[in-house]
Computed example of a mutant assay.
Amino acid sequence: MVAIPISRTIAIDSDELVESFTRASGPGGQHVNTTDSAVMLRFDVAASPSLPDAVKHRLAVVAGSRMTREGVLVLRSEGARSQLLNRQEVRDRLIEMIREALIVPKTRRPTKPGKAAKARRVDAKKARASVKQGRGKVSID
């Protein structure tokens, strides 16, 4: 039972992660046909006691299609020829996703233009109007 640190206050128990190993696709010759180097990590976000509810909701947004309807996050790595490197890579991706979900987005407060901005706008309109006013037919008197 090893805890994986995410932040100062949040750590995930390694028992919450389910890893399965399969054969990786792609090049590798005879080696790829004999070793289970691809790693599929499953993390049940909905049932995790380690994450607060707000983080779970933001993690669902960050995960997108990698999250199942049941709330299970599924990540797969088969880039390296080593199972150990793929395990580390998929765990690093999970930690990065959770850290991204920890960031609370700032709420936008609608603002109105100030008096000076309104005055500049009106002055610009008047200047443009006077330029256009100067155009037109010239009358000879």
Rank of each mutant, 00 (worst) to 15 (best):
R81P: 07
A80G: 01
V90T: 11
V61F: 02
L41W: 03
R23D: 11
S7C: 04
N33K: 14
V122R: 08
M97A: 03
V90F: 06
T35E: 12
G71M: 04
V18T: 15
G79D: 13
P49F: 01
R93V: 08
S37P: 07
I140C: 00
A119Y: 00
L75Q: 03
G28S: 04
R99E: 14
I4Q: 05
T22Q: 09
A116D: 13
R42G: 06
V39T: 09
D15H: 15
L85K: 15
R81C: 05
V122M: 10
K112M: 08
P110S: 11
P49A: 05
R108H: 11
A117G: 08
A38Y: 00
D36V: 02
V104D: 09
V61M: 07
K132A: 12
L17M: 14
K56M: 08
A63D: 03
V122D: 08
T22E: 15
V72H: 05
V104E: 15
A127G: 00
L94C: 06
A117I: 03
D123M: 14
V90P: 09
P52C: 09
L73K: 03
V55S: 02
R120H: 09
T107E: 15
V138D: 07
P27M: 06
S82W: 05
F43K: 01
I95M: 10
R76M: 09
M1A: 11
R91A: 06
G136K: 04
T9K: 11
K125S: 09
D141N: 08
V39Y: 05
G64K: 02
R76V: 12
A119F: 00
